[in-house]
Design a protein around this nucleic acid. Structure first.
Length: 298
DNA sequence: CCGACTACCTGCCCGC
DNA sequence: TGCGGGCAGGTAGTCG
């Protein structure tokens, strides 16, 4: 699930329970996820106050009061939920997760408020364990190997048609793959790439370089693509936020908003682009499903 | 250097 | 009802 909008939704949902609170204990219930946990992570985090929750691309960042940052990537199946502080003791506790298999609860942040009393538990669940946690110093973040090569944020000032033209010129990879490459633009995943291409009427099979003119400037399609990316991400964050509020009340689980996508997972359905009589098709590119309309995406 | 493929892991859904 | 195959929102490593 987690692409940029989902991570942002998770960040917003966790902020009230973490920002300004102290990590009384960081419980690691296994030695690794995708990678081993950083050595001494629990010790380093214990007693630290969370200054702020942030996000870079699909990474959520937990800034601590000593200048360190705990960086979380949710992989394919990672999610967080908020419990407590003591609701699990209540009979018929509806806050207890009904949808998550607790065998896959791998990490728990035991939080405490300013008074030192337990305030909440932030639980990371990840069945496939493709997620991972890193521990870096804030001053090193931008030059850290894991983050230095990340492209611009879709919602940031650095993203422009001119920028993408410079990245895509002469590139022979399909635009679908180019947009999934986090070095070109950071935060998009399979769903939102499909959606942005559908909105901008660009075939996912088109080579990235074909969106750039001979003069090296953005072609018309590339000029459409940038606002399509910005809009679809902004709308997804908005939708995630609204659904998050509902879900937080239901069972405390964060980050699984449901959205009706225009192309993704709609194989065989009529294209909903006004005036288009196409049918959504599924193809495989680089081993991953692409959904698109062959009629209006050229 | 570039692009495609594979592996990592579990759960779920579908067809037989 | 059980079982095998395919597929899933991501990315790092390998291979040609």
């Amino acid at each position: 699930m987690p692409e940029l909008p989902e991570v942002e939704t998770v960040r917003r949902g966790l902020a009230p329970a973490m920002e300004g609170h102290t990590i009384a204990r960081l419980e690691l219930r296994r030695a690794d996820l995708r990678f081993p946990f950083p050595a001494d992570l629990s010790t380093a985090a214990q007693g630290r106050r969370v200054v702020s929750l942030g996000r870079r691309a699909k990474f959520m960042t937990i800034d601590l009061d000593d200048g360190a940052v705990i960086v979380c990537h949710l992989g394919m199946s990672g999610s967080f939920r908020v419990e407590g502080p003591d609701l699990s003791d209540q009979p018929g506790d509806f806050h207890h997760s009904r949808n998550k298999d607790q065998r896959h609860d791998h990490v728990t942040f035991h939080m405490a408020g300013r008074d030192g009393e337990p305030s909440a538990r932030i639980i990371y669940n990840d069945p496939r364990r493709f997620g991972y946690i890193q521990y870096v110093q804030r001053v090193d973040f931008d030059t850290h190997p894991s983050f230095a090569l990340l492209g611009p944020e879709p919602m940031g000032n650095a993203l422009s048609a001119d920028y993408l033209a410079a990245r895509f010129v002469n590139r022979k990879t399909p635009i679908k793959a180019a947009l999934l490459d986090q070095r070109n633009i950071a935060g998009l995943g399979n769903i939102y790439v499909c959606e942005a291409l559908w909105r901008s009427g660009i075939s996912p099979k088109r080579l990235a370089g074909s969106l750039v003119t001979k003069a090296g400037t953005p072609g018309m399609a590339l000029k459409r693509l940038v606002p399509a990316i910005i809009d679809v991400i902004a709308e997804a964050i908005e939708a995630g936020g609204s659904t998050l509020r509902d879900h937080a009340q239901a069972d405390g689980t964060l980050g699984y908003f449901q959205h009706r996508f225009a192309a993704y997972d709609r194989e065989g359905e009529a294209c909903s682009q006004p005036g288009c009589n196409g049918t959504i098709k599924r193809i495989v590119q680089s081993g991953r499903s692409t959904f698109y309309c062959p009629v209006h995406q050229r």
